[in-house]
Structures are given as structure tokens and as C-alpha cells.
Simulated scan of single mutants.
Amino acid sequence: MKSETYLFAGVAVFFLLTDVAYIWFAREPAGIAALTVSCFMASVIAFFCLVNHRRKGERPEDRPTGEIHERSGRVDFFPPHSGHPVITAAAVTICALGIIYGFWLFMIGIGVLAVGLIGMVLAYVGRQDG
């Protein structure tokens, strides 16, 4: 994670320098806000990578002598087919249409969205790892 930390810290510094130059030459609020937010987002990612590197230590990918077999084993649980993402996408579409056509349609979309999100969150609550 050390190389990722350096990468995103460099991106944050780039956006910071660009933001300073933009403030100096353009003085346009929308661009200043966009560059400032971009700098903060890159800083957050760099901070996350730094904390993970300090907490978990070096990965085999970080060492020049790292071997492939050092990262072998179970990666994670990947769920099989599920209809909940489709329900959630349809609900977001209904909510977007509700913004255009009326509050009643937006509220229907919120109800469908709740069903989709609760289904995704609670789909594997009772699952046992092992």
C-alpha cells in the first residue's frame, strides 16, 4: 500500500498546486471548489492507504522479492445470483422519475429502494464462514 499512498499523495499535491494557480489566475468559484474537493478526495485515499499500510504491514506486492504463492488462499465470499441490485437500480430510476413527475412517484421509489437495500444488506446475515 506504500506505492498507492505515494501515488495518491502526488495526485493530491498536483490538485493543490493546480488549485493555487487557479485561484491566482482565474478566481472563478466553481473551478476553485472542484479543484479543492479533488485535492481533499485524493488526500483521503492517500490517508486510507497509509493507515492500511501501517496496520497490516507490507504486502508481497510491495517487495521486489515477493512471490505469487504468498498471496494464495481464499480471497473472500462472492455472492451468487441476486435480484436485489436490479430492484435497487429500478428504485433509483423510479426516484429520478419522481423528481420530474411528482412527489408521489418519488415516495414509491423510496419504498422500493428500501426493499432493495434491505435485501442486499441482509441477504447473507445467517451465512457461516468456513
Rank of each mutant, 00 (worst) to 15 (best):
T18C: 03
A30N: 01
F77E: 15
L50T: 13
F8P: 02
S43V: 11
I87V: 15
A30E: 10
K56F: 09
G57Q: 06
T65C: 05
L105K: 13
L16P: 00
G126W: 04
Y22V: 02
H69M: 13
E61K: 01
C49V: 03
E28V: 08
H81A: 14
V125C: 04
M41I: 03
F78A: 15
F77C: 12
V37G: 04
C49R: 06
K2D: 02
I108W: 07
C95S: 09
R127G: 09
A89D: 09
Q128T: 10
I94R: 01
T5Q: 07
R71E: 14
A91T: 11
V92R: 02
P29T: 04
F78E: 11
H84G: 10
A9D: 02
H69T: 06
E4M: 04
I87W: 09
V13A: 00
T5N: 03
R59Q: 11
V13C: 01
I110Y: 00
G111N: 05
A114D: 14
I118V: 12
R127K: 15
H84T: 11
R27A: 14
F8H: 07
V86H: 07
Q128E: 11
T93V: 14
V37M: 08
V92G: 05
S43C: 12
V92T: 13
I45A: 11
V125M: 13
D129I: 14
A96R: 00
L117A: 12
M107L: 13
A114V: 13
R63L: 14
N52M: 10
S72I: 13
N52L: 05
R127Y: 06
I45F: 08
P29G: 01
F78D: 08
L113A: 10
G116S: 09
F77A: 14
L17Y: 09
V13E: 01
R127L: 11
A21R: 04
I23V: 12
S38R: 02
A123S: 12
V115S: 11
D62I: 06
A26G: 05
P64F: 11
S3M: 05
F47Q: 02
P29D: 00
Q128H: 04
A46M: 08
F15T: 01
A123Y: 12
M120D: 01
L16S: 07
T36V: 07
L50C: 06
E58S: 15
K56Q: 08
M41R: 04
F14D: 01
P29S: 04
W104C: 02
W104L: 15
A114F: 14
D129R: 08
K56T: 09
D19I: 03
A9Q: 01
R55G: 05
A9G: 01
A46R: 02
M1F: 07
I87G: 09
A26D: 07
A34H: 04
D19V: 04
A21E: 00
V112I: 15
A42N: 05
V13R: 00
F47T: 10
E67D: 13
V125A: 14
S38T: 13
V11F: 12
T36F: 15
C39T: 03
L50F: 08
V37D: 04
F25M: 08
R127D: 06
A12P: 03
G98D: 07
G31T: 05
T5E: 02
V125I: 10
S3I: 01
V86C: 03
V92D: 06
C49E: 10
P79M: 14
A12R: 01
M1I: 09
F78L: 13
